[in-house]
C-alpha cells in the first residue's frame, strides 16, 4: 500500500516536471493544454467519449471532442456511411455491382477533423506516441465487431498489417499499421475465443516501390497498387480467416489487392479494420 503511494507520488512529480519541460500540445490545432487529472467526457456518446478519453494526451479539450464516428446507416460490406440518415444498413451500389474480395470492412471514424490530424501526425511527423491511443481505440472496435449476438467472442485466425516497401519502411522508420496492433497479443491473450489469434508483422510483403496513393483517383490507385503484394513464404493462410489492418480506407484499392493475394493463397475470409475511412469513396 505504502509502496504504491510512494510510486504514485513519484510519478506525479515526474509527470509535472515532464509537463513543465515538454508541455502538452494539441496535435491538431497546436495549442498548448494542461494535463487533466479527472476526465470530463462523461457527457459524450460512448464512441466519442472513448475517443476523447484515449486522446487526452494528444488533443486539447476542444479537438478531442471534434470527432465523427462511423454511425449507421452504413454499407454492410465496406462500411461506407450513407448520407440519408433514416434507412437501415444495406449494401452500397459498388458493393452490389462489383463486390471485391473483402467480406467485411469497418473503420473507427471518418477521415476528417482531429482524427485526420492525428493520423497525419503519426504518419508524416513521426509522432509514434499517437499509435498507442489509436491502437487501443481500434482494439475496442475489434471487440465490437467480433462479438456475436449471443455476446460470445469470436475472431479471425491471423491479423496482418498492410506492409510497407523496404525503402519506404526505412524512410519512415516505422510501419504505422503494425504499430496499431503491436500491443494486441497482450489484449488478445485475455480474450476468450481469441487465444489462438496471431498478429504477424511480416505476413504480407510489399514487393516494389509504389507512389503514394493520396492524390490519385480510383482507377489510378488500382493500377498503382496492382501486383505490389505477395505472401511471405513462412505463412500458411489456407482455410484461415484473416484480418487486415491499415490506417486509412479510401477506395479500398490497397486492402483489396492484399485480400486478392490472400484469397489466391487459399484464405477462407478476409476482413479489414482501419482507423479511419473517407466519408465518400475515393476522396482523400
Amino acid at each position: 500500500m505504502r509502496k504504491t503511494l510512494v510510486k504514485k507520488t513519484l510519478k506525479t512529480i515526474f509527470l509535472s516536471l515532464k509537463d513543465a519541460v515538454f508541455p502538452l500540445k494539441c496535435l491538431a490545432c497546436q495549442e498548448l493544454f494542461l494535463r487533466q487529472t479527472a476526465h470530463c467526457e462523461m457527457d459524450l456518446a460512448p464512441g466519442k467519449g472513448l475517443y476523447a478519453h484515449h486522446t487526452s494526451l494528444y488533443l486539447c479539450e476542444h479537438c478531442r471532442r471534434d470527432f465523427q464516428g462511423i454511425e449507421s446507416p452504413i454499407c454492410l460490406r465496406c462500411g461506407l456511411m450513407f448520407k440519408e440518415r433514416f434507412s437501415g444498413d444495406h449494401l452500397c451500389g459498388d458493393c452490389l455491382t462489383k463486390p471485391g474480395k473483402i467480406s467485411f470492412a469497418r473503420a473507427l471514424g471518418v477521415y476528417d477533423r482531429s482524427l485526420k490530424y492525428l493520423i497525419h501526425a503519426l504518419k508524416y511527423r513521426g509522432k509514434i506516441q499517437v499509435s498507442r491511443a489509436l491502437s487501443r481505440l481500434l482494439y475496442a472496435l475489434y471487440c465490437q465487431c467480433y462479438t456475436n449476438e449471443t455476446m460470445e467472442c469470436e475472431g479471425p485466425d491471423i491479423i496482418l498489417p498492410v506492409p510497407l516497401f523496404k525503402k519506404r519502411f526505412r524512410q519512415r522508420g516505422f510501419n504505422q499499421a503494425w504499430l496499431l496492433i503491436k500491443d494486441w497479443p497482450l489484449f488478445l491473450a485475455c480474450r476468450s475465443g481469441n487465444e489462438k489469434t496471431e498478429c504477424i508483422k511480416d505476413g504480407l510483403v510489399r514487393n516494389r516501390w509504389t507512389d503514394p496513393q493520396a492524390g490519385l483517383d480510383r482507377k489510378k490507385r488500382q493500377s498503382n497498387i496492382k501486383g505490389a503484394f505477395s505472401l511471405s513464404s513462412h505463412l500458411d493462410v489456407r482455410k484461415k480467416h484473416v484480418l487486415l489492418i491499415d490506417d486509412v480506407y479510401t477506395t479500398g484499392a490497397t486492402v483489396e489487392e492484399c485480400a486478392a493475394v490472400l484469397m489466391k493463397n487459399g484464405a477462407r475470409k478476409v476482413d479489414v479494420l482501419t482507423v479511419s475511412r473517407t466519408s465518400e469513396k475515393g476522396v482523400a
Partner: peptide, 17 residues
C-alpha cells in the same frame, strides 16, 4: 529539449524551451 521529444514521445514548445 527537441531531441528528447523523440525519446519521450512528447511535444515541445519553443518559447517554453
Amino acid at each position: 529539449v527537441i531531441l528528447l521529444t523523440w525519446g519521450l514521445g512528447a511535444e515541445h514548445d519553443i518559447i517554453n524551451s
